[in-house]
């Protein structure tokens, strides 16, 4: 089936995007990413530790840019200025790579997006030539504004980052999808496979997750479950579900030719 996810003109076979944080070691990171089938993986940009063992492998040696589309994020940034600085460093680090994940957070308790700073950063980044996939609230008006600015994907939360609370407001996600032409990717809140399937059944173009996999008891097995859930949810969306018939049953077997009752 030719059903590709197209972001900024590039097509991807997998609609599952995964983060690379919170794993116990690089071996587990690599195994989980491979089991997920993801082609786009997020990374963070952090200060180099002085005194770090220079012989230790780096993340990019485990997950090379030649094999994956790396999506540097701005996790931990609380202002447009910090987010823009971080992504300019990321672009330098990745040899001019321009596809990025913008997230500007509002406070450290909720990690809820600060959409005012997000919009400011998106304008600067788009003008600077970045292809911006943007983490935002599930506000359809803000989502449309971010598309109008030139973001290449809108990534609303389904619930708070790392909460695993699932799809709390499917109505808002649908309002966003009605208004926005670029891909809509649920980013944050997925807790288990059914959450990912629900997002895809709603018609979302993809799902981005990290903690749901890394925080599972068996991350590699959960990565595989998420791959299947995203595929199943997508197929169900494309197939078109049957209409719901409230308070009205409909037998699957023929109603004619039933043997007569001996009790009447």
């Amino acid at each position: 089936m030719n059903d590709k996810l197209i972001i900024a003109g590039k097509s991807y076979s997998s609609r599952l995007l995964v983060g690379t944080g919170k794993y116990k070691d690089f071996t587990e990171t690599k195994a989980a990413v491979e089991a997920s089938g993801a082609e786009i993986i997020t990374i963070a940009i952090r200060r180099s530790n002085i005194g770090q063992n220079p012989n230790e492998p780096s993340l990019l040696e485990i997950l090379p840019p030649s094999k994956y589309t790396l999506l540097p994020n701005t996790a931990g940034c609380y202002s447009a200025e910090d987010a823009v600085r971080t992504l300019r460093l990321a672009r330098e680090l990745l040899d001019g790579h321009s596809l990025v994940k913008l997230e500007v957070l509002g406070d450290p308790q909720s990690l809820y997006p600060n959409v005012i700073e997000t919009i400011a950063a998106a304008k600067t980044l788009v003008a600077d030539g970045f292809q911006v996939m943007v983490y935002t609230s599930d506000d359809p008006i803000i989502a449309k504004q971010l598309e109008d600015i030139g973001c290449v994907a809108i990534m609303p939360l389904a619930s708070l980052i790392g909460s695993g609370m699932g799809i709390l407001n499917p109505w808002n996600l649908q309002l966003i999808m009605e208004r926005v032409q670029v891909p809509v990717i649920v980013d944050a809140g997925v807790g288990t496979a059914s959450d990912a399937a629900i997002a895809m059944e709603l018609g979302c173009d993809g799902v981005l997750m990290n903690t749901a996999i890394a925080g599972a008891q068996q991350p590699v097995l959960m990565a595989s479950a998420m791959k299947q859930a995203v595929e199943a949810g997508r197929s169900a969306f494309l197939a078109g579900r049957m209409p719901k018939k409230l308070y009205s049953a409909s037998p699957s077997s023929p109603t004619a030719g039933i043997i007569s009752s001996t009790r009447s």
């Binding site: 983060g19 997020t42 940009i45 180099s48 780096s58 790392g162």
Partner: peptide
């Protein structure tokens, strides 16, 4: 100076 590297993140 700020010297940065790529690390795991979501």
């Amino acid at each position: 100076l700020e010297v940065v590297v790529a690390v795991g993140g979501g």
